[in-house]
Every structure is written in C-alpha cells, then in structure tokens.
C-alpha cells in the first residue's frame, strides 16, 4: 500500500477506533491517538465516515470535542456489530482516500459536508457589557486584551461541530495557552455572544446557560428557525471574526448570517 502522502494532503492512516458501549442504545467512538489534535481530527473522520456509511440501525450522531456518540436501534444491531461495521468501513475508506489522495482531494471523505466549504465573516462588537471575560482571558493567557482580539481576528477558524442549539464550535485559536471555563457557569448568556474556552470559540445562538468565557458579541442572528435551513453554516465551513466599532451595531443587528461570498455579491450588485 502506498503510504506516501500526496503533496499537501494530510497523511491518511488506518484509524485505530476505540468503541465503548454508552447504554443499551449508544456507542462511543474515539480514535486512539496521543495528541489532542490527532484525536480531534480522528473523531471528525469517524463522523464523516458514519454519515457516509449510514450503518444499519443508525438513529443519530452526536459529535464531541474528540469523540463521536452513535445512537442506534438496539433491536436492529448490537454494539459489537455496529463497531465492526464502522471499523471495516474505516479500513476500506482509509484505503480509498489514500488511493484517491491526489485526484479526489480531501472532499472524498464527504457525507453531508460534501459541499465546498463556505467562508463566513462575522462582525464582533467588543465592549464592557459585551466582553465581561476579556480581561480575565487576557490575564490567564499572559497577553494583552488587544493581543487576544488580534489572535481572534487573524485566525481563519474551522467549524468543527454544531453544539447545543446549532451553536457553531470552532477551532483552533493559536493562544499561548488554554482558556479555562467559568468556575460557576452563567445561567443565561445572551444570543450572539462570542465565547472562548480551551483553544476553541463558539457563538451562543439562543439565550441559555454557558460556562464559556464571553469576549464579544455579534449583532448578527446566527440561527433562526424561520429560515430553512435554520443556519447557513455547517461543520467544515470557515469563519473569520472582524472586530467592528459599536456604532455599526444598529445597522447589522438581527441580520441573518450568510456566507461571505453571498454577502459580497449582494453588496456589489447593490452598490456598484
């Protein structure tokens, strides 16, 4: 087997999948790997694989930071059968991806994320009210508040998964360390709040509790169930944050977040 990675392709290796029963109708999948990055990348591959495969008995999939929970119909399939199916597919899939490497490109791992990744530009307002945890985050990382925002703005983030209520969870921020969670989670965080924890960022789509550190707020509506689909982003899409002055809030408030390409096309048509 050709193990030479194609130029600029991530190395494709056989996934060493650990499978743990999670109740009579759940199976927790993780990749045995030494670093957090490898485990996260591995879990993403597993998720794509399971979507592609749609194994018999599959009910739903919940993505974790470095794991994938597969929920299944326990009358249709057992833990062992499901784990074996996914491992066999991983072995076959890894070979196919390796073989197609140069020609097929990374999109070959597809699933529902097959469509080309979109880029989103998300304006963020930073203020005393909107950024209660910014000073604490800067202190914890040992850098200035400006430096924290600088890293946020200069990094093109990738949406790793949709967390609670379709919240886009993104990684990873090249902070000099990990940002801890709030000791006491807030019982209510306003929608639009831009939050960080570890080296990840997330946007709060609806009011609700959160233990993440709040460093800004976007005036845009990121999720709206009156839209179909309710979000225009999906895992695999890219995000760039842009800190904007508070004076821009009013003009942007409540606008539904759409990909940058769609927005700039609209602007071009309208203004020029």
């Amino acid at each position: 087997m050709n193990l030479q990675p194609a130029p600029e392709q991530p190395t494709q290796r056989l996934l060493d999948i650990e499978a743990t029963p999670f109740g009579d109708s759940g199976l927790m999948l993780r990749v045995a790997a030494s670093t957090a990055e490898e485990r996260q990348a591995g879990s993403r591959l597993i998720r794509e694989l399971v979507f592609d495969l749609q194994p018999h008995g599959l009910l739903d999939v919940v993505a974790g930071v470095d794991s994938v929970l597969v929920e299944f119909d326990c009358l249709a399939v057992s833990h062992g059968q499901l784990a074996q199916t996914i491992r066999l597919a991983a072995a076959g899939g890894a070979r196919v991806a390796g073989g197609l490497g140069a020609a097929g490109g990374p999109a070959a791992a597809g699933g529902p994320e097959k469509t080309a990744a979109e880029l989103f530009e998300i304006p963020v307002v930073v203020s005393e009210a909107f950024s209660p945890d910014l000073p604490g985050v800067a202190d914890e990382l040992g850098i200035s508040q400006e430096a924290v925002l600088g890293i946020l703005e200069s990094t093109e983030l990738s949406i790793n998964l949709l967390a609670s209520a379709m919240a886009p969870m993104m990684g990873s921020l090249p902070f000099p360390g990990q940002v801890s969670r709030c000791r006491e989670p807030r019982t209510n965080v306003d929608p639009g709040s831009v939050m960080v924890a570890g080296t990840s960022a997330i946007i709060q789509p609806f009011p609700g509790p959160s233990g993440w550190k709040v460093i800004g707020r976007t005036p845009l509506t990121v999720c709206d169930i009156k839209e179909d689909p309710a979000t225009s982003y999906a895992p695999g899409d890219r995000v760039r944050f842009r800190v904007v002055p508070e004076s821009e809030w009013e003009a942007l408030e409540g606008q539904f977040l759409r990909p940058a390409a769609a927005n700039s096309r609209g602007t071009t048509d309208g203004n020029r």
């Binding site: 759940g26 927790m28 919940v62 993505a63 974790g64 930071v65 470095d66 794991s67 929970l69 967390a163």
Partner: peptide, 10 residues
C-alpha cells in the same frame, strides 16, 4: 473530561 455526547438516560 472533555465534552462528549451523552445519551438520554445517562
């Protein structure tokens, strides 16, 4: 424990 999926009934 990093965030992971939790089934109903956990």
């Amino acid at each position: 424990i990093v965030s992971h999926g939790v089934p109903i009934g956990a």
